[in-house]
Nucleic acid binder design. Sequence first.
DNA 1: CTGAAAGCGCTAACAC
DNA 2: GTGTTAGCGCTTTCAG
Lengths: 337, 337
Amino acid sequence: MAATMHDVSRLAGVSVKTVSNVINDYPYVREETRRKVLDAIDTLGYSPNLSARSLRSGRTNVISLMIPDLRNAYFAELADSVMRAAAERGLAVLIEQFGDDRQHEIDVLRQPRARMVDGVLHSVLTLDQGDADLIAELSTPLVLLGDRSVNGTRDHVTMRNTEGARAATEHLIAGGRRRIVALGAHPGEEIGSAALRLDGYRQALDAAGIPFDGSLVVPVGTWLRRNGAEGMRDFLTAGTPFDGVVAFNDAIALGALRALQEAGLRVPEDVAVVGFDNVDETQYSMPTLSTIDPGREEIARTAVDLLIRRMEGSSEAFAPEEIAVPFRLVQRESSAG
Amino acid sequence: MAATMHDVSRLAGVSVKTVSNVINDYPYVREETRRKVLDAIDTLGYSPNLSARSLRSGRTNVISLMIPDLRNAYFAELADSVMRAAAERGLAVLIEQFGDDRQHEIDVLRQPRARMVDGVLHSVLTLDQGDADLIAELSTPLVLLGDRSVNGTRDHVTMRNTEGARAATEHLIAGGRRRIVALGAHPGEEIGSAALRLDGYRQALDAAGIPFDGSLVVPVGTWLRRNGAEGMRDFLTAGTPFDGVVAFNDAIALGALRALQEAGLRVPEDVAVVGFDNVDETQYSMPTLSTIDPGREEIARTAVDLLIRRMEGSSEAFAPEEIAVPFRLVQRESSAG
DNA sequence: CTGAAAGCGCTAACAC
DNA sequence: GTGTTAGCGCTTTCAG
């Protein structure tokens, strides 16, 4: 049985209140008393029961991070950034994965596990305006990450999807490419990253006076390497001429890189490629991958800070904020020349 | 203010015990009563306070997973597997990163945060026999993962480091390679993955009657892509002839792949390469990477099950177990022919 | 500066 | 089948 505060107080010959004062760095404790208490804590190997503390204080100092899948490097790196930002502020992070399943995404939001965390960071995958009510009802402090707009009911940290994809496309156009594949479209979706990035792609074409060609828009299911490779292989089979690829994330870009080279095409000589996310791997692929850096660290820091504000919140004092973090084009070998 | 069990019992016109019975699926509750309670729960949007439940029951149903760094794909994938295994058993996972810092690794083990979790899965990085006392003292149920042996004081799930590395090396030898680089050594370390894998490498050479050549053993610091690339570049600069590489993990193998190709060497024609870990990326690299699959899923499942046994444990009923999970050689393009 | 005592929300004896 | 009640270990008034 682990030692309790009472055990400590007994051994130190003081009251539990004094022990509590020492533990919580209450300043007005005589130095000698503090010593005695610390000694007692040490000899008993005491450490406070966090469940009891939480019950009493109403805070757990744990937040949860809900993401689709850690195996996706972007989310692993996001989780890393979030955990570092959280640790700096004394918070632990409980990660919950919901895969690419819409119902699961919703369930995880409603789950009672949320009653054990002070707040939730949710990286939106499929939620949309129709879920606004659900989201508004949740009593937990909540900050949304990612792309889908669930307008105005909650704080929301987004990346600049449209602008980023536009910059990626413009970069290829500036390099002389004219027939640019948009890889990763989700036909039928009108919101979400895929739609926003496709918008950016079209804007760039429009601005350059290049006509939009639907046959260059290649759908890809879940944004995984495998699907990027498959999507590109299918496209190659169709034989449509092209000289550039704007992939909607790095994973499918890397898959496409593989498929292009299998087909004997040289990157960037025959086909220039740009991705989106700037995951670590893009610095080491063959060739290295040009990409859009969405500002992951800043997204994480901003989100954690917003969440803390809500958690401490004189609650609904502030209107929900939507913060779009700046992006950056990172040029590497896959689009050189 | 969130609703409590008392609110529910009042609204339903029953006692708290009955509410508790309904929530905990106690079978002997009249159907009508159950209905009333469930209705009340629904209208109040009640969900139980997990801190209170934990305080009372002594269980949180949360375990923590301590790993060096999520940005390393192997650990992200391990975390994924652990979370899935844990979720199947009703456990949530709190991830703690400790980087590559020994002191931090120790701190995180002693941290009081551990008092909020029912058990700990710790992926050993730098702990060794000298830390046996520290580890033995911890009161939390604990299962160690990984390679270093902290003999016999705790359950330990390991991968077959030596055998895996040996199989990787033998595979290259079988393909006719004779001058095989061992990439990723940690000179001076006598235990840990690096040492064990180097052992396997030497065993394979010995068995084939190939003399060991120290100039083919290339040290690499932290096993990251970047360091693998650098280690290989340095080695290439030295000009030592070679025709194969056994890299001690996939990240450095992928970095090396990059460095080799930058130098104009063809893989596998000029140099065959094998990694270790079978991370997802190895299926999509250029070329795809042969590797040792250490049985990540099984490691995760085994570890979670062992931990649960300790948590439920009529405690020290069982002697600490050491379970080595079977590995598998996955042959891909980087060592074809 | 320190002590006594109440109570956070829940579960589990124990009654009825 | 259902109600009463005593804590789990901590923080926090409120006294002294």
